[in-house]
Computed example of a mutant assay.
Amino acid sequence: MKLIDCPRDAMQGWPTFIPTTQKIAYLNGLLRVGFDTLDFGSFVSPKAILQLADTTEVLDGLDLAQSGTRLLAIVANLRGAETAAQHPQIRYIGFPLSVSETFQQRNTNKSIAEAFDDVTRMQELCARTGQQQVVYLSMGFGNPYGDPWSPEILGEFTQKLDALGVGIVALSDTIGASTPATIAPPFRELTAAFPHIEFGAHLHTTPATWREKVQAAYEAGCRRFDGALGGYGGCPMAADALTGNMPTERLIEFATEKGEELHLNTEALAEAMQLNQEIFAGH
């Protein structure tokens, strides 16, 4: 079971700017924990997300020498991918591809067809740089716009991504709409149809529903999970104020119960949790 901690997702919507030095200290703390991957930042327009305008400066301050954790950066277009590709210490370049035409337009100001063109060019870019693209199928568990959604549609998108050579696909709960009934069928079908692709779950949850969601994905074959310590961030469009990112500490709890070996540094985890509270509970 792989854990991807996503401080970028926790920070991006935070109402007050988190100082660059504080971000660096927190991310270096997370790097010492031993997560598989750290979704650390994003190369997007500062006009879109001011909180992440310092991603390059943050990257320069990270101590990667003593950490086996790999870095993932999110981009919204080819320009962002080209910037990420200039930093060889970034292993993964993540791109949100929506299965909802409405949300793709709202999120990236492009159609799904145009977004697929970007995915194609990003895949070619990664082939040249030795990096790897991670495609997030946003609105992966339904959408509020009335756009079509089904496990079959997710399969069609994955078929196209597979043809391009994309090896990691994460179904993403963009608005907190996921339930076990919408989580299990896609993972069950996709993991069977595309055994060579690594499927991930980027779930949002309320405090009361986290376990049933993780359980549904796990039992359906998913072994890659995104989370954020404390469950901060993740769901600005949700109607429920309690909905946020899947708390990484809950994922650790679940993995431990299942006998999954995570090889985490528990002392470093406790220190990272303290830094997390200083940032998010202190603002």
Score class of each variant (00 low, 15 high):
T55H: 06
S67H: 02
L242H: 10
E114W: 06
D226Q: 09
Q133E: 04
P148C: 12
Q22Y: 03
L71M: 01
C222K: 03
N109F: 06
L59T: 11
I279V: 15
I93Y: 02
G41L: 03
A268D: 07
A228L: 06
A53N: 10
L251D: 10
E198A: 09
A127I: 00
Y136P: 01
T120P: 00
A115K: 02
Q133R: 03
P247F: 08
W14K: 09
R121K: 15
G29I: 02
D147H: 12
F35A: 04
R224K: 08
L72I: 00
M246I: 08
V135F: 00
E271H: 13
L161Y: 13
Y92K: 06
C6S: 15
E219I: 04
L171E: 07
Y232C: 04
N265I: 10
E156G: 02
E124A: 15
F40W: 11
A228K: 08
P195A: 02
E271L: 02
I90M: 03
G155D: 06
A53M: 10
Q131D: 06
N107D: 12
Q132V: 05
Q132Y: 00
K213D: 01
Y145K: 01
R79N: 02
G80W: 06
E267S: 11
P19R: 06
G61Y: 11
P46V: 12
P185L: 02
G167W: 00
R79S: 09
K23A: 08
Q159V: 01
D9V: 10
Y145N: 14
G13Y: 14
S138Q: 07
P180H: 05
L264P: 10
K213Q: 15
M246D: 06
A201L: 04
I49G: 01
D147I: 13
E257S: 14
E271I: 00
Q22F: 04
G130N: 07
S45H: 10
F116W: 14
L71G: 08
G230E: 05
N143F: 07
P46N: 08
A228C: 06
I175T: 10
E156W: 06
D117M: 01
N28Q: 08
G167T: 13
M139W: 07
G259S: 05
G221N: 12
F225T: 09
T174C: 05
Q12G: 12
L251T: 05
Y145W: 14
T206M: 00
Q133G: 00
M122Q: 11
T179W: 04
L275Q: 15
G41A: 14
L38N: 08
L52A: 12
E260V: 15
A272M: 03
A228M: 01
Y136G: 04
M246F: 09
V33E: 06
I153S: 03
Y232G: 04
F194W: 00
L3S: 06
L52W: 00
G221W: 13
F43P: 07
P7D: 11
R121E: 07
N143L: 05
Q277H: 13
L264F: 13
E189T: 10
A48Y: 08
P151F: 09
A84F: 10
A73W: 03
D54A: 12
